[in-house]
Design a protein around this nucleic acid. Structure first.
Lengths: 152, 152
DNA sequence: ACTGAAAGGAGGGTTTA
DNA sequence: TAAACCCTCCTTTCAGT
């Protein structure tokens, strides 16, 4: 799909606030309501807009201890990798997991209540997954920036 | 603010799909539409729900090269830290930035088009920020998991 | 804090220009 | 594309429990 500057601006608006009415969007884009409606439909249909979500303030729900865990597997056979990735997907403390280049295989972003919850997570959940060789964790001191909006 | 199991379920529903109507939410929660409406208002008013956003599929907009950059500052004076954090906030390629414990000071999640865009980002933007001592970058091979939903 | 009803407004689609 | 118009359904308010 090809998108122009108006689509880009529209995506930027929707990424910052998806509860705006089509009328409000139309004003900012100098378009008619119908034109905005059609463009949004197209973006959704093409899977460019995946979905709409509410963002929750983690500090307000006692989940503001963020840890980044580097993980190395003992082996890299297909079987081990698939199993590890499936298990990680089931852990709700893990918000993000990336297979990475470099010294370690994976980077996990883990969200829990506090250090003791993190300890529990490591002992009871993460290290219970087979084939984990070594881990190295770093803790967030402060969140400097966090956005879900992709600049186009 | 105190929240009960219904609020938790409501937050979970809104975090997975914020475009659901209050009626649909009411059905899932066995509540009336008004009761759902009031609960959502309370969650918004208390800042628990920060905002509502559209999530864009990065692979569909040619932005699927993800890099994690560890950064060490040459000094840690208040002035350097503040300036660095302000500059980083202005870089739209940086989706996330955390001040971390450990060997490096900061971890940045950077989103660009490809390796050559990343090179450009490093040379033209990131390393133009003063006081950066050393950097160490890792590249995403595969995204195993990525959610914005906080489990409650 | 919940329900149900009722008003106002936005979504979703069609037609005309 | 844009604008006018429609009907439907959702949001929001209000009275009552």
């Amino acid at each position: 799909m090809v998108f122009d500057d108006i689509d880009r601006k529209l995506l930027s608006l929707l990424q910052s606030d998806s509860k705006q009415t089509n009328k409000a969007l139309a004003n900012q884009l100098n378009l008619s309501v119908t034109a905005v409606y059609e463009r949004i439909r197209k973006l959704e249909k093409n899977g460019i807009v995946k979905n709409y979500v509410a963002l929750v303030d983690k500090s307000k729900v006692q989940k503001d201890f963020v840890a980044f865990c580097h993980i190395k597997l003992v082996q890299h056979s297909q079987e081990y990798v698939v199993k590890f990735e499936r298990e990680v997907n089931l852990l709700n403390e893990v918000l993000e997991c990336y297979h990475l280049s470099g010294d370690y295989d994976y980077l996990l972003k883990v969200l829990v209540k506090d250090m003791s919850s993190f300890r529990e997570f490591m002992v009871e959940k993460l290290t219970k997954i087979d084939h984990i060789g070594s881990t190295h964790s770093m803790f967030m001191i402060n969140e400097v920036k966090h956005t879900t909006a992709i600049a186009l």
